[in-house]
Simulated scan of single mutants.
Amino acid sequence: MSAARFAKIVGTGSALPRNVVSNAALAEKLAAQGVETSDSWIVERTGIRQRHIAALEVTSSELGTQAALAALQAAGMQAKDIDLIICATSTPDFVFPSTACLIQAKLGVAGGAAFDVQAVCSGFAYAMATADAYIRTGLANNALVIGSEVFSRILDWNDRTTCVLFGDGAGAVVLAASESPGILASRLHADGSQQHILRTAGNVCSGAIVGHPFLTMDGQAVFKLAVRVLDEVAREVVTAAGMQLEQIDWLIPHQANVRILSATAKKLGLPESKTIVTVDQHANTSAASIPLALDLAVRDGRIRPGHHVLMEGVGGGFTWGAVLARM
C-alpha cells in the first residue's frame, strides 16, 4: 500500500508596489476632483490607513512573478521544480493567455500546467483547494499558488464608498507533496444569485467596453453575507479536519474590512489576538490578501511550523471558501 500523500506549504512570498498612498494623501487627491473623504472617515469605517497602488506598467503577472520568486526562495526551490502554477486574479493582464501562463514564462519554465482561477476575493482559497487536489491525486508534485491583483485599475475614483477600500499586491505559496499532513481540509461554495451585490459588470466586445467597467458594491449586503458565510465555512472546514475551533492557532480571513474581521473572530469565539490583520497596511487586495497576510506572519515569526492556520475568503460571485493548513 502506498503512503498517504498530502500537500504542504513549504514557502511563502509577497510583492507590493512601491507607491504607498496614505489616507491623507488619497483624501487630498480626491478633494481635488470634488470627492470628500478623510483619514478619520476611512479608518473609522474600514480600519484602512494606507494602500499600495501599482504604476501603470506594473501588471498582475509582474507582481505575481515577484511573489512567486520570493516563495521559491523561502522553499529552497527553483522554478524548474514547479509542475503546476495556479494564479487567482480578477485583474488579469489580458483576456488571454492566463496570468499564470505569463508568470510561467517570466519564471523561464515550461511544460507544467498553468491556469487562472477567478473567484474574486475567495480566489486564493479556490486556488489552494485546487492545487491540493492535484498534489493529493499525484497530478502534480510542486505547485505555485498565487493571488495577484491590480484592483486600482477597476475603481471609480469618484465613488468614495469603494475607491478608498482597495489596493494592489500579490502573495504566493509553494505547495509540495509530503508524507506528513499539510492542507488538512478545504471547502468551497458559491451563490450566483447574489452576484449583483459586488461586481464589475463590464466586458470588451468588438473593441468597445460594454457595460459598467468599474467595481460596484452594496456594502451593507456584502457585510451581512460575509460575516455569516465566513462563520459557517470556518466551522465546516474545522469539522472536516476532525478538529475543534480552540485548536486553531491563527485565523487569516480575507482582508476586506476590520469590522468584518472582528465580527468573524467574535462569532467563531476566537480572540482577536489570533487573527492576522493587514488590512490597515494593504487595504483590500482581493485574491492577494490572504497570501500577503500569511507571508507577513510567517516572516515575522508569528506563524511557526506545526501551527494550525485557518484561511478563509469571501468575494463577488458570490463565492466563499476556507482552507485549514498545518504549517
Score class of each variant (00 low, 15 high):
A119E: 05
D132K: 04
E62Y: 07
C87D: 02
D132W: 01
L72E: 12
G112E: 07
T130G: 00
S61R: 05
V95Y: 14
M128L: 15
Q78M: 06
A114E: 08
I82D: 10
A114C: 14
E62V: 14
M77K: 15
V58G: 00
T65C: 12
L102E: 09
F96Y: 11
A68H: 04
Y126R: 09
P92N: 07
A113C: 12
A70M: 10
Q78V: 06
I82K: 11
V109E: 06
V109N: 10
S122G: 06
S122T: 15
G64I: 08
P97D: 01
A114P: 03
Q78N: 13
E62W: 12
A129M: 01
A74I: 04
D81V: 12
P92Q: 08
A131S: 03
E62A: 08
F124R: 00
A114H: 08
A79E: 02
D116T: 03
G123M: 04
I85N: 10
Q73P: 01
V95Q: 15
I82V: 15
A55V: 03
Y126H: 07
D116P: 10
A119L: 11
D81P: 07
T89M: 09
I103Q: 05
P97S: 01
T130C: 12
G123V: 01
M128V: 12
L69R: 15
G111C: 07
A71P: 03
P92E: 13
V120P: 03
L56N: 05
C101G: 04
L56E: 14
A119S: 13
F115V: 03
Q118G: 00
L69N: 02
T59V: 06
D81F: 08
Q66V: 00
I103E: 06
A68Q: 05
A125D: 11
D83L: 14
G76S: 09
C101P: 03
E57L: 01
A129F: 00
P92M: 06
S60D: 04
T91W: 09
G64N: 11
G76V: 05
D81E: 15
K80W: 00
T89G: 03
A113V: 11
G123S: 01
Q78I: 02
T99Y: 04
A114G: 07
T99C: 09
A105M: 02
Q73N: 14
L84R: 10
T59Y: 01
D132S: 07
L84A: 07
A79C: 09
A105C: 03
I82Q: 09
V58T: 15
D93S: 07
Q78R: 14
A125E: 03
A133N: 08
D132V: 07
A88V: 12
T89I: 04
E57P: 00
Q104L: 12
Q78W: 01
A105G: 11
M77E: 13
A129K: 01
Q73M: 05
T130I: 00
A114K: 11
G112M: 11
A105Y: 02
A74W: 05
A129H: 04
L107K: 12
G111W: 06
F94L: 08
E62L: 14
A127M: 03
Q104M: 14
T65W: 02
I103S: 01
A88C: 10
A110F: 14
F94M: 09
G64D: 06
P97C: 01
A71R: 02
L56W: 04
V95N: 15
A74P: 05
A67G: 09
I86W: 04
